[in-house]
C-alpha cells in the first residue's frame, strides 16, 4: 500500500513539474508573437519602447499600410511612404496560389515516378537531385536573372518570371512525398494492374485518393514558400518597388534608413507581419492533422 501511494505521488510530482516546464515553454514560444501583435497596435512613435503593453492603442498602423502613408520623424506628420503593401501582398498571393498548383503537380508526379516506377536511371537521378540541391541557391541567381531577361520576364513581367523560377526546380523537393508513397503497399498496385489498369490509371485512381495527407502537406509547403523569398524577388525587381514581394518590402521597412525616417516603420512592420501570417496560420490550423500525417508518413522511411 505504502509503495503504491508513493509511486502515484511521484508520478503526480513529475506531472506537475512537466506542466510547469510546458507552461514556461509555451510562454517563451508565444511571447514574441504576442509582442508582435501588441506592437502592431502601438501608437507611440519610435522603434522600441521600454514597456510591453502599448500606452496608445490604434489601428493606424494597419490603415497606413493600405494607404501607403507613415508618420515621419521630421515633423510628426503623416506623409507618403514608399510602402505599397496591398500591391506586394496581392502579387505574393497570386504567385503563391499559382506556384501551389503547379508545384504540387510537379512534386507529386516526380515522387510517384521515383517511388513506384522502376527505370534504369532512377537511382542515379535521385543522387543527381541530391547533389544539385547542395549548390547554394543564390549562385544560380545571376544566371537565372539573365535567362529571365532573355525571355523578357523581369521587371514588368517579373510575376511570371518568379513563378517560373519557383516551380522550375521544385521537383527536387520530392523527398518526403516519395517516402509517403513508399509506405503504400505494393499489393494495391498489383491488384489494380491485374484488373487491367495501365500505370497512369493506377496513379490517378488508386494511389492519389489514398494520399490526401501528403497532398495537403505538399500544398501547404508550396503555399508557404513564396512568402519568404527575399533574395531572388529583390534581384528580379531590380530596385523598382512596384515589383517587390512581401518579404522584400517588409525587410526594407526595418532597415535603418526606413527606421530613422519614419517613426512608425517598426509598428507598420508588425502590422504587415500580422496580416501576412494570418492566412497561413489559419490554413495551417485547419489542415494541421494532414500536415502531421504527411510529415510522419513521409519521414518514416525516408
Amino acid at each position: 500500500m505504502k509503495r503504491l501511494r508513493s509511486k502515484k505521488a511521484v508520478e503526480r510530482g513529475t506531472n506537475a513539474a512537466i506542466y510547469v516546464i510546458l507552461t514556461v515553454i509555451s510562454i517563451i514560444w508565444l511571447f514574441p508573437f504576442v509582442y508582435l501583435l501588441m506592437q502592431s497596435f502601438r501608437g507611440e512613435p519610435g522603434q522600441a519602447t521600454a514597456y510591453f503593453f502599448p500606452k496608445q492603442w490604434t489601428f493606424d498602423n494597419y490603415i497606413h499600410l493600405f494607404t501607403g502613408e507613415g508618420i515621419s520623424y521630421k515633423d510628426g506628420l503623416v506623409k507618403a511612404t514608399e510602402v505599397k503593401f496591398p500591391l506586394w501582398y496581392g502579387r505574393t498571393l497570386l504567385i503563391a496560389l499559382v506556384v501551389t498548383v503547379i508545384q504540387t503537380l510537379i512534386v507529386l508526379v516526380t515522387s510517384y515516378a521515383l517511388s513506384r516506377l522502376r527505370f534504369k536511371m532512377r537511382k542515379p537521378l535521385m543522387n543527381l537531385m541530391l547533389i544539385l540541391g547542395m549548390f547554394p541557391g543564390f549562385m544560380s541567381m545571376t544566371a537565372l536573372y539573365f535567362l529571365l531577361k532573355l525571355l523578357g520576364l523581369t521587371q514588368d513581367m517579373s510575376t511570371v518570371g518568379l513563378i517560373l523560377v519557383y516551380v522550375g526546380s521544385s521537383c527536387m523537393g520530392y523527398y518526403i512525398c516519395k517516402g509517403f508513397f513508399d509506405t503504400i503497399p505494393k499489393s494495391l498496385d498489383e491488384a489494380a494492374r491485374i484488373d487491367g489498369a495501365n500505370r497512369q490509371q493506377v496513379f490517378f485512381k488508386v494511389i492519389l485518393p489514398l494520399s490526401k495527407p501528403i497532398i495537403i502537406y505538399t500544398i501547404l509547403n508550396a503555399f508557404m514558400a513564396p512568402w519568404g523569398d527575399y533574395m531572388f524577388a529583390s534581384l528580379i525587381a531590380f530596385g523598382n518597388s512596384n515589383y517587390w514581394n512581401v518579404a522584400v518590402g517588409m525587410r526594407e521597412m526595418i532597415q535603418p534608413a526606413a527606421l530613422s525616417t519614419y517613426a512608425d516603420s517598426f509598428q507598420r512592420f508588425c502590422a504587415a507581419a500580422v496580416i501576412v501570417s494570418i492566412p497561413i496560420t489559419v490554413l495551417f490550423f485547419l489542415l494541421q492533422r494532414y500536415y502531421v500525417e504527411g510529415i510522419t508518413g513521409g519521414s518514416v522511411k525516408g
Partner: peptide
C-alpha cells in the same frame, strides 16, 4: 528573343524613362 540579345528583353515599355532616387 534570342537574336535580340540582352537589350531587348528588358520587359519595360519602350517610351519609359526610369529615374532612380532615394526612397524618402
Amino acid at each position: 528573343c534570342a537574336p535580340e540579345g540582352g537589350g531587348g528583353g528588358g520587359g519595360v515599355d519602350a517610351n519609359t524613362i526610369q529615374i532612380w532616387g532615394p526612397g524618402h
